[in-house]
Amino acid sequence: MPQQLATKTNGKIILTFDRLIYSNLLAEISPKALETPEEYDRLLAVAERLTFAK
Score class of each variant (00 low, 15 high):
Asp18Phe: 01
Lys32Trp: 02
Leu25Cys: 01
Lys8Ile: 09
Glu35Thr: 14
Asn10Trp: 03
Leu43Val: 04
Ala33Phe: 07
Pro2Thr: 06
Pro2Asp: 04
Ala6Gln: 12
Leu20Phe: 02
Thr9Ser: 10
Glu28Leu: 15
Ala47Gly: 07
Asn10Ala: 15
Ile29Leu: 02
Ala53Ile: 15
Thr16Gly: 04
Phe52Arg: 09
Leu20Lys: 13
Pro2Cys: 03
Thr9Arg: 15
Leu44Lys: 15
Thr7Lys: 14
Leu25Trp: 01
Asn10Ile: 02
Ala47Pro: 02
Gln3Asn: 11
Pro37Ile: 05
Ala27Tyr: 04
Asp18Met: 00
Glu35Lys: 12
Pro2Lys: 05
Ala45Met: 12
Leu34Trp: 01
Lys32Cys: 00
Arg42Leu: 10
Leu25Tyr: 00
Thr51Asn: 10
Thr36Ile: 02
Glu28Arg: 14
Gln4Tyr: 11
Asn24Met: 07
Lys12Ile: 02
Leu20Arg: 08
Thr9Ala: 11
Glu35Phe: 09
Met1Leu: 13
Glu39Ile: 05
Ile21Pro: 00
Thr51His: 15
Val46Lys: 06
Thr16Val: 04
Leu50Lys: 01
Arg49Met: 12
Leu5Tyr: 08
Pro37Asp: 15
Phe52Asn: 13
Tyr22Val: 13
Gln3Met: 09
Val46Leu: 06
Met1Arg: 12
Lys54Ala: 14
Ser30Gly: 06
Lys32Tyr: 05
Arg42Ile: 01
Asp18Lys: 03
Lys8Leu: 07
Leu15Lys: 08
Tyr40Leu: 12
Lys54Asp: 10
Pro31Met: 00
Leu20Gly: 08
